[in-house]
């Protein structure tokens, strides 16, 4: 894997076209929506306290699409759940529009990997849930819910129950339901993780479309590198044990995005770089080899 870039003569992932540079600069000039400052998470375990996240700091700007990747179990879900206040903060600060967050709220909408539509409510009533909780009149709630369903392309299904929808449709309703509250940031924890490859590709396209239509900041967790590069402005790579920010990679792929870009040099070089960050394959296997040799010689 290490020598592929040489063979293909790929550019460095740091090289950015004018469009990309301009867009990323523009984003950086936008106000900071979410600031994470030295975030620490510890879980008590039988062998004592275990630190899952260590000194995690980063900023998310308005309208940015930030993906978080990292080896499984490195604390991605824990991190995003902390942003939603579904998990207590051990130490550090989470600032939303410069104010520290304290409890879960509609200003941080969340889409989970698990299907979490309320099965006893119709699709429309599901989207109305947050609006009604916010004391909107039934009339307004219904009207807005239908608008959001229209945006995710599911208005004709408004009166069906979740059990009647496919997984992909359910996740689109979940997105509409979260967006209906006009959150300052949309948190997505592997939202397409349970879908098959084809549906997943469709969902990625939908998400890009939705992002074009409305003003929304997104933090998106995935273990799929293609997905991360395809959707994001920046990709945050989380290191495991304890979870630390390894690098925040600016994606040098132009927008609007389309599936043809999967094979473009800037796409590939970014993906290869991310791959190396997550699986430092060469060194690791060298280490493994050393261990094997040690064990072997000891036994003799």
């Amino acid at each position: 894997m290490m020598d592929i870039p040489n063979k293909l003569n790929l550019p460095s992932y740091k090289e950015q076209s004018a469009e990309v540079k301009e867009r990323l600069d523009f984003i950086k000039r936008q106000p900071v929506v979410l600031e994470i400052d030295n975030l620490v998470k510890e879980f008590p375990t039988e062998e004592g306290v275990r630190r899952i996240l260590d000194q995690v700091s980063f900023k998310v700007h308005r309208r940015e699409f930030l993906s978080i990747i990292g080896p499984s179990g490195c604390g991605k879900s824990t991190l995003i759940r902390m942003l939603a206040c579904l998990e207590d903060i051990t130490d550090g600060l989470i600032l939303l529009d410069t104010y520290p967050v304290g409890e879960p709220g509609a200003d941080r909408g969340m889409v989970f990997q698990k299907y979490t539509l309320f099965p006893w409510l119709t699709v429309k009533k599901n989207v109305m849930f947050g609006l009604e909780v916010a004391n909107k009149s039934k009339f307004d709630a219904e009207r807005e819910a239908l608008q959001w369903l229209d945006i995710v392309g599911l208005e004709p299904y408004a009166d069906l129950f979740p059990a009647q929808l496919s997984g992909g449709m359910q996740q689109r309703v979940a997105i509409a339901r979260a967006l209906a509250n006009k959150p300052k940031v949309l948190l997505m924890d592997e939202p397409f993780g349970a879908l098959d490859a084809q549906t997943r590709a469709k969902m990625q396209a939908y998400l890009l479309q939705i992002r074009e239509k409305i003003d929304i900041t997104i933090i998106f967790i995935t273990h799929d590198l293609d997905e991360a590069v395809y959707l994001s402005d920046r990709v945050l790579v989380l290191e495991a044990n304890p979870g630390r920010v390894q690098e925040i990679v600016e994606v040098p792929v132009e927008r609007p995005r389309s599936p043809e870009q999967f094979l473009s040099p800037e796409f590939l070089t970014t993906k290869i770089h991310l791959e190396e960050l997550i699986h430092p394959s060469a060194e690791e296997s060298k280490d493994d080899f050393k261990v094997v040799k040690m064990v072997a010689t000891e036994e003799v």
């Binding site: 939603a84 579904l86 879960p104 709220g105 509609a106 941080r108 909408g109 969340m110 989970f112 979490t116 309320f118 849930f129 947050g130 909780v133 916010a134 979940a174 339901r177 979260a178 509250n181 948190l187």
Partner: peptide, 9 residues
């Protein structure tokens, strides 16, 4: 949890 992130108390 989903309801909490939708603002339910």
């Amino acid at each position: 949890e989903a309801a909490q992130t939708l603002g339910a108390k």
